[in-house]
Design a binder for these strands. Structure first.
Lengths: 235, 235
DNA sequence: GTCACTTGTTACAAAAATGATACAAAGTTT
DNA sequence: AAACTTTGTATCATTTTTGTAACAAGTGAC
């Protein structure tokens, strides 16, 4: 498995340093953030596995950040708090946190709890990206989709730009190969907000992707009339 | 989702009673065990979602029970212990427990942690499925109905197109094999809106399906005069 | 066989789904 | 703010799907 990415959100620089040292030793990749804003940005821009979250932040909204983080990524969340108040624990867990630890704690325990959370979330995430664990997905006539850079490369290695939206849509299709996905489902997989019937936005985007990957014969992204679209995997 | 099954393993009858009362109120299904032997039996005989585990049991082997339980089922394990010793916590978590709580605890916190574990294990368990998700229904002379692609394949693997409406109708018939279904019933199963008496739409569609699957002798989809149509399953 | 009724078949028209294009709105960058 | 990128809406053309009507064919009762 790849090196797990852990985002540590805390405004206590000393603690951050200790955590970073310890966990890096354990073989994790540590990213740090010390306020809400940068935390959310980072959660959005890289694939995280676990988030360590201190709720008391300078620009903090407290627990409200939990659902925001979850919206941006699928990482497990361990709340690390100075308060040992049971009610707060409960609310955090109800909001979707996976674990709650009270400061002060021993690093060994933190590490063990991270592992426990990783075990669960990893199982879930592996299964979502079947065999394509490599972050590069190949398809069609030499195309490579690089899910870390959000870029598409043609067979000569030239990057041919897809927009982020197009990229996400193509990725969603590719991650469910040979499966017809409805417009509604695709909509939910790739963006926020409510899907409205008779919304043609997905169709347009499919058209644009097809044009960019020379798929005018609909061999790669197949239209399943009355249902939606389907990525046709190599045989 | 179905009512979650929770196995509570503890030899303290009073505590068991309290836990049982509280969690049943919360809508869980509680199973209790007060020694290692019966715990393992129960883990083997029913589908559990969460296991609450006290490590100090009369016939106890302590933490060694964790892997044994995991072998028997996929439930999440929450260790509930009288000891607050960090090393013990860590070992339990390393062995595969999902959480560790120290007695005494508040029931509200236990309930919240159960929920958190359920969320995680549910995700993981859902994710184990995807491969079997390709649902293919075989019938007749080598036909395969692929419900993920909404397509019909003949014995050579060539897709022979059914429209989505025809597909749904055939699927509805196949899912109730050897049972005559009325036009009205089929109508409701396959589309929105009101069925009107003397509506021949279903007949027409049956005709079209028959033509496409070479069923001119009505051997696969049989007409039941005065009633409707029936899918005849292989003998 | 004839009659009354149900079902199959065909042709055609209405309805629906999709692809393409142009343009407007929204969001970014400079 | 201007220039650019990205995304969505509106529109139209095309193709596909579906239902209606009409009639032919089948079925069972008498």
């Amino acid at each position: 498995m790849h090196k797990a990415n852990i985002l540590s959100i805390d405004d206590d620089a000393n603690l951050q340093f200790v955590v970073e040292q310890y966990l890096e030793e354990d073989g994790y990749n540590i990213i740090t953030a010390n306020d809400t804003k940068s935390a959310l940005e980072k959660a959005d821009s890289m694939p995280l596995d676990v988030i360590l979250l201190d709720l008391v932040l300078p620009d903090g909204e407290g627990m409200a950040i939990i659902p925001l983080l979850q919206q941006k990524c699928r990482a497990g969340i361990i709340v690390v708090s100075g308060k040992s108040d049971t009610t707060e624990k409960i609310i955090c867990l109800e909001m979707g946190a996976d674990d709650y630890m009270t400061k002060p704690f021993e690093m060994r325990e933190l590490a063990a709890r991270i592992k426990a959370v990783l075990r669960r979330t990893d199982k879930a995430q592996e299964a979502i990206k079947p065999e394509n664990q490599s972050e590069k997905i190949k398809f069609g006539d030499g195309w490579v989709l690089d899910t870390t850079q959000f870029q598409l490369f043609d067979k000569k290695g030239q990057s041919s730009y897809l927009t982020i939206g197009e990229f996400k849509l193509l990725e969603a299709l590719i991650l469910a190969p040979n499966r017809a996905l409805s417009r509604e489902h695709l909509f939910e997989l790739t963006r926020d907000g409510e899907f409205e019937a008779f919304d043609r936005a997905i169709d347009i985007q499919i058209g644009r992707i097809r044009k960019k990957i020379n798929d005018d014969k609909a061999e790669i992204i197949k239209t399943v009339r009355g249902v939606g679209y389907m990525f046709v995997a190599e045989t």
